[in-house]
């Protein structure tokens, strides 16, 4: 019983990590209609920027805010420079660009900062939770991710900019007709996804340590989470992340063994795509995959 509880809570903690990255994936999908394979590496790169700022002596929260701002600008820049020429290109071409960016960011981070593991600070690490089951940082991830979710919800539902961004993604032609500057909406979407990714990176790094390959394993689980929850739904992405985190722990510990945990994540991806492409919380509510 004790081990069951431990595994569930540990699963929620890692699930919160997947959820935070999945949010960035959903963000970019909602605003551009693409799945960005370089999302993880962009987040990793942002985290290095934060690390460099903290190491230079800046307080954590100032570094946090600066990193989010720089990442936002970087995301906008990438869209304007790299992706804008590809607006009418076939999906394959865009995927190739994403994979190229993945490799480029990874190599660049290694070249600039080296490959040694780096410890990344967390403001909540020292916070006592009164139980060995989860640490202060685990709680911190969950709170920040949920806060992001609420902010996103409010932004998309209750601001005209949010509405314009949704319109630009879903029906660019009509949006343009009613005066939405579609190109800039896409760039804004990229900027916001990069900013959310930066937050995710800064949440993840205190747990997995910072190194250029930090996001490799996480991104796959984040895909599983985003697809399970419904790639269009931010709330679904968070729920999906938590479900994947808990399920993989339970299934790995009690059913199939740890060797097949990754296979389990892949199985989720495939099952969702085959049986319910819109996911649990996508446009239509469904029972189960």
């Amino acid at each position: 019983m004790d081990i069951l509880l431990q595994q569930i809570i540990s699963g929620l903690a890692s699930g919160a990590i997947y959820a935070s990255v999945a949010l960035a994936l959903v963000m970019i999908y909602n605003t551009t209609g693409h799945i960005n394979f370089a999302q993880g590496e962009m987040a990793m790169f942002s985290t290095y920027i934060a690390w460099a700022l903290v190491t230079a002596g800046l307080p954590y929260w100032l570094a946090f805010v600066l990193t989010v701002a720089v990442s936002f600008a970087g995301g906008v820049l990438i869209e304007r420079v790299v992706l804008r020429p590809l607006h009418n290109a076939p999906v394959m071409a865009i995927i190739v660009v994403f994979i190229g960016m993945l490799l480029a960011f990874n190599a660049l981070a290694g070249w600039i900062w080296g490959f040694l593991l780096k410890e990344f600070p967390s403001p909540a690490r020292a916070v006592a939770t009164g139980t060995p089951l989860f640490g202060g940082h685990d709680l911190f991830i969950l709170i920040v991710t949920l806060a992001e979710l609420v902010l996103l919800f409010l932004f998309f539902r209750h601001t005209s900019l949010g509405l314009a961004m949704r319109a630009a993604a879903q029906n660019p032609a009509s949006a343009r007709l009613v005066g939405v500057r579609v190109g800039w909406m896409l760039a804004l979407g990229w900027g916001m996804a990069a900013a959310i990714g930066a937050v995710a990176g800064m949440l993840v790094a205190p747990i997995v340590f910072l190194d250029p390959n930090m996001m490799a394993g996480i991104l796959l689980y984040a895909f599983a989470a985003a697809l399970l929850g419904g790639i269009t739904s931010p709330g679904g992405a968070v729920a999906g992340g938590l479900i994947v985190g808990v399920m993989e722990n339970l299934v790995g510990t009690f059913v199939i063994g740890n060797e097949l945990k990754l296979t389990f994540a892949l199985a989720i991806v495939i099952c969702v795509l085959i049986f319910k492409p819109s996911g649990l919380f996508g446009k239509v509510m469904v029972k189960r995959v």
């Binding site: 004790d2 740890n258 060797e259 990754l262």
Partner: peptide
């Protein structure tokens, strides 16, 4: 014995199982 894959983001679950 608890195994893990290098692709796994964290090994917390394995440590908890070993501890218990």
């Amino acid at each position: 014995e608890a195994s893990f894959e290098t692709s796994e983001p964290t090994i917390d679950s394995q440590i908890l199982a070993l501890k218990s």
